[in-house]
């Protein structure tokens, strides 16, 4: 295996570029919002005025984040090691959280399906085709979200 290491050391991975162009927006976003959302999206014609939707997912709860937490979410969202770019799980996407990254009028929403069916769905406000990503088993993105949602409330 040491040969492989030597040989492969010359191969720099595409790093975050492998995830797509939206990574730049994520990295330079000036606003990151975290939501708990419904498991399935709601078609536009079925959405109601008394509810809030993020990328068609009904918001169940807005989860406030401080700047440090927002940074940890951003870093985890652009970390290529958190995503399996080759293999996919044959399980249904069940949304649990949504991360909305904004910079000016540009917005990208990353909808998260949690373990054991860890997946992410990138949805672009521009209307660009959505991107499906597979979360790795020990990814830091779900861990970062879990750390935020499990913190004790200060009253």
């Amino acid at each position: 295996m040491c040969l492989l290491s030597v040989v492969l050391l010359g191969n720099k991975s595409c790093s975050s570029k492998a995830l797509g162009d939206f990574v730049n927006l994520l990295k330079t976003s000036d606003k990151v919002e975290l939501f708990a959302v419904d498991a399935f999206p709601t078609a536009a014609q079925e959405q109601t005025l008394d509810a809030t939707y993020v990328a068609d997912y009904k918001v169940l709860e807005f989860i406030p984040t401080d700047p440090v937490e927002a940074t940890s979410l951003t870093l985890a969202a652009v970390e290529v090691k958190n995503f399996d770019l080759i293999n996919v799980k044959n399980c249904p996407f069940m949304a649990k959280y949504a991360l909305r990254f904004s910079k000016g009028k540009d917005r990208v929403t990353m909808v998260i399906s949690s373990a054991p069916c860890g997946k992410a769905r990138m949805i672009f406000a521009s209307g660009a085709k959505e991107r499906n990503l597979e979360l790795t088993p020990e990814n830091s993105l779900e861990a970062a979200i879990q750390k935020i949602v499990s913190k004790p409330l200060i009253k």
């Binding site: 080759i86 293999n87 996919v88 799980k89 044959n90 399980c91 054991p116």
Partner: peptide, 14 residues
Amino acid sequence: TAASPGEVSWANNA
């Protein structure tokens, strides 16, 4: 079937 209860099964596009 591909997986035991509680397990995921895997695929890739290629």
